[in-house]
Design a binder for these strands. Structure first.
Length: 345
DNA sequence: AATAATGGCAACCGCGAAAGC
DNA sequence: TGCTTTCGCGGTTGCCATTAT
């Protein structure tokens, strides 16, 4: 449905150069008032379609139109946009002498950039850091959010207490920033670093979030929960790893140091085989041993072998569960190969 | 000085809803 | 009730001035 385009005749479609018609339009409106624009277009003899003539009148010729926007008006537009989105006509109604087109143009040319420079996403009106957090939560795994929030919290604490790791992460972030600048066309004055840090915010949160996102991404590329854990040790030592220290900082967990609550790294209970919860406690203790091995420097290969041995001695239910997990994950990566790509390097 | 790139602004146009016949 | 016309909205496009190379 809907009417056919009234301006389909491109031959008669003359962009700009309204000088001749403006005077005729104003004269006609002053004589007859505003009515049916199609009829007006025919009667006035102006070679424009009524629709364009109406737009010209509303946007440029109406006597009460203002020219420049005040800072207060800009602020109001931002607030309204945050509330109702790109409903330009409604926003324009709140501003005397403004048209929806003016508001829209102001937004697209000025306010969007202004918000971006302040570290705020102009679409969602959320800080970029939160957008990144949300990005980290996009994983499809039911437990992804829980896992990421936990990691993020712990990583923040680790960075705050360890300046050398902060420096290391800053280097990583700068590498990532360079990657952004070379692969994503950013305005010259708005590299991501300037953009993110322009709000006088300490970079720690963002750095930790980058690290956490990266960590989650890396973890997703490994084939077993054990591998995820050991990989975490290669990034942050065991004493500050999200796994081992989650108990000490979270408080709500009763696990002691070096114990791992695997449920945080597995799918939701609804996806667990019926007897997996019984196995989970054993697994926690046993993997705690692996953590100890990793912590005292005798880690990784031997510990992995040990854990393999431990896993191999477990009941068939848990091993089959792990196998089913691996199958599901492999299938997922086959179907969505982009998931296995590291977005940061 | 010439050319390219960029930004701002104004106009165009597709689409759906409402109104009219 | 269904078709046509008009209107409102918002995204897109084009033009022009300014800036960068």
């Amino acid at each position: 449905m809907g009417r056919p385009p009234c301006c389909s005749d491109k031959v008669n479609n003359r962009r700009c150069n309204w000088n001749d018609e403006d005077a005729n339009t104003s004269t006609f409106v002053s004589k007859h008032g505003i009515g049916n624009w199609a009829t007006m277009s025919k009667k006035s003899g102006i070679g424009r379609c009524g629709r364009n003539q109406k737009q010209r009148w509303n946007n440029r010729l109406k006597p009460d139109l203002k020219q420049d926007f005040t800072p207060q008006e800009e602020e109001l537009i931002i607030k309204l946009h945050a509330t109702i989105g790109s409903r330009w006509s409604i926003i324009a109604q709140q501003l005397a002498g403004r048209t929806d087109n003016d508001v829209k143009n102001l937004w697209n040319t000025k306010l969007k950039k202004k918000l971006s420079a302040m570290g705020i996403d102009p679409v969602t009106h959320k800080p970029f850091s939160q957008i990144l957090t949300d990005y980290g939560n996009i994983g499809g795994f039911p437990k992804a959010r829980t896992r990421f929030v936990s990691l993020n919290r712990e990583l923040k604490g680790a960075f705050m207490s360890r300046p050398e790791q902060l420096q290391q992460s800053l280097q990583k972030f700068q590498n990532f920033n360079r990657h952004c600048v070379t692969t994503i066309k950013l305005p010259k004055s708005e590299t991501s670093e300037e953009c993110f840090f322009s709000n006088n915010q300490a970079p720690v949160d963002l750095l930790s979030e980058f690290e956490a996102i990266k960590f989650v991404t890396e973890s997703s590329n490994y084939n077993s929960p054990k591998a995820i854990f050991l990989q975490s040790n290669s990034i942050i030592d065991c004493s500050s790893s999200p796994l081992s220290s989650s108990s000490s900082s979270a408080g709500s967990h009763s696990l002691t140091e070096n114990q791992v609550n695997w449920s945080d790294y597995l799918l939701d209970g609804a996806f667990l085989p019926p007897n997996i919860k019984d196995q989970e406690e054993k697994l926690t203790i046993e993997e705690g041993l692996v953590c100890s091995g990793a912590q005292d420097g005798s880690n990784n290969v031997s510990s992995m072998e040990d854990s393999d041995a431990l896993l191999s001695t477990k009941g068939t239910s848990s091993s089959s569960f792990v196998e089913s997990m691996l199958e599901c994950e492999n299938e997922m990566f086959l179907n969505f190969p982009g998931l296995s790509e590291d977005p940061f390097y």
